[in-house]
Each structure stands twice: as structure tokens, then as C-alpha cells.
């Protein structure tokens, strides 16, 4: 059973993730090439950056060369495919319906929220997320309406990457995943695990490859997910956007793991 799911995932949805993980070690960071006869800069890096000083921006990134390539791939995927699709979606689909779609996917993700809250022994969150799932699935008509938030049970997301972090797993190397963006080894492991659980859950409720709905499901999930992220590549105005995003992602995850 698990075997078929894994095969299915590898053959289709997560192909690129796996490909990335396999290829990553082949590429390390590309360092600037300084001409041999270049005069020393007015403020050389070695004068401004000290070895004995810690810098928040230094994050373990042994596959930086590959990561930067995937970053560029993601930026172009965004520009030529995802953003135009999302724009069409937001232009032609009324916001009420979009909200319903968003609630529907959030509700399905609540399954892993419950599991991961439980795995982190967080009683309050597990209860909160369980009540959410039950009430939104029933009264909220399969999750299309988020009635739970109004009842005092707000969304409290927990993923398997957070669970691993909670139990002390380190981040591992920073990774930029195709389609998914910033991650690290711990969170990629979490992402794959949560996806397996979700796929299993969807299979159980009859949404599988044979039903023909799975393809549509993932397309809509992709659009909804992208539409909810207020980030556009290369619009930060900073030439150090890769570094900045790497820092924000890493620190943001620490905050989420600590809660």
C-alpha cells in the first residue's frame, strides 16, 4: 500500500523534489571570480567581514549553486506560468468562491495539523484542530465554509517539519525546491511525509487517480496555494534577495517551531 503511494508520488507530483535532492550534492556555491591583476578594493571584504564575528545571514547552504539555479527556475515558472494563471483565477473567479476553495483545501490540511499537533503532545492545539475539522467538514459543508474560526477555534497550522523540529531535529542544509521554494532538509522530509499522509487520506475518501479528480484537485491546490502567498520574485529591490529570503525562511520556521 505505502509502496504504491510512494511510487505514485515519485512518478508524478514530487518528481522534481526527488530529482533536486539527488542532484543537489553535484553543485556547490559559485564564488565570485576576481581577476588576478585586479587592484584591491577600497574596502575589501576581508577588512569588513571578520572571521570571529557571527552573522545572522550565514546559513548552512552547501548546495548554494544548485539552490540559486532552482531559485531562478522558480522565478521564471512564477512569471510565465503561475502568476498569469493566478491572475486569471482572481480576475474571473469571484472572491467568495475563491475563499470557499481556500477553506476547502485548508480543511483537508487540518488532517495533518491534527496529527502533528498530537505528535508534539500539544493537547490544546490537537483539540482545537480536531474540533475545527469536525465542525468545518460537517456544518461547513466539506470545509467550504470556515465556521470553526467564528466558534473560537482558529487555524493553528502544524506540519511534520515543525514536529521534527519540536523533537530536536536540526534544519540540515538549506534547500530551494522546485515549485515549493525555500526549504531545508528537515522541512523537505516533513513536506514529503505530510504529502504521503494527505495522499493516503485522499485515497481513503475515494479521491484517487482512478476517480479522475486527483489531477484537478492538485491543479486547484497549486493555484490556491500560490494565490495566498504575497511574494513576487525580484521585486524586493534588493540584489541580496536570495540571502534575505533564506534568512527570513529559516528564522520564520524557528519561530513556528517554538510556538
Amino acid at each position: 500500500m505505502i509502496n504504491t503511494i510512494i511510487q505514485k508520488l515519485i512518478s508524478r507530483r514530487l518528481y522534481f523534489v526527488v530529482l533536486a535532492v539527488v542532484l543537489l550534492p553535484a553543485c556547490s556555491a559559485v564564488q565570485p571570480v576576481v581577476p588576478e591583476d585586479a587592484p584591491e578594493a577600497m574596502h575589501p571584504v576581508k577588512e569588513l567581514v571578520k572571521d570571529d564575528v557571527e552573522y545572522a545571514i550565514d546559513i548552512y547552504d552547501p548546495f548554494e549553486g544548485m539552490n540559486r539555479n532552482i531559485y531562478i527556475f522558480n522565478a521564471q515558472l512564477d512569471e510565465y506560468v503561475l502568476i498569469p494563471v493566478v491572475n486569471t483565477y482572481t480576475t474571473y473567479v469571484p472572491s467568495l468562491l475563491r475563499q470557499g476553495v481556500h477553506n476547502f483545501f485548508s480543511n483537508i490540511a487540518t488532517v495533518t495539523d491534527i496529527l502533528n499537533s498530537g505528535l508534539q503532545l500539544k493537547g490544546d492545539k490537537t483539540l482545537n484542530n480536531s474540533v475545527r475539522f469536525v465542525s468545518n467538514t460537517t456544518i461547513g459543508l466539506l470545509g467550504v465554509f470556515d465556521v470553526a474560526t467564528g466558534m473560537g477555534f482558529p487555524q493553528q497550522k502544524e506540519d511534520f517539519g515543525q514536529t521534527l523540529g519540536y523533537w530536536g531535529a536540526g534544519e540540515g542544509p538549506y534547500l530551494v525546491l522546485p515549485f515549493f521554494g525555500p526549504s531545508n532538509l528537515r522541512d523537505t522530509t516533513g513536506l514529503i511525509t505530510d504529502s504521503l499522509v494527505n495522499t493516503y487520506f485522499l485515497d481513503e475518501v475515494g479521491l484517487n487517480y482512478d476517480s479522475g479528480w486527483e489531477f484537478f484537485y492538485y491543479i486547484m491546490l497549486g493555484i490556491d496555494t500560490r494565490a495566498a502567498i504575497p511574494f513576487h520574485y525580484y521585486e524586493s529591490g534588493s540584489p541580496f534577495e536570495y540571502e534575505t529570503l533564506r534568512l527570513l525562511y529559516t528564522e520564520g520556521r524557528k519561530v513556528l517551531i517554538a510556538d
Partner: peptide, 10 residues
């Protein structure tokens, strides 16, 4: 794809 981290620090 050049790493700019050292220049960002500097």
C-alpha cells in the same frame, strides 16, 4: 548564480 553572501555582509 554567484553567491553574494560575503558582499551582503560587507
Amino acid at each position: 548564480t554567484t553567491s553574494l553572501t560575503e558582499y551582503s555582509k560587507a
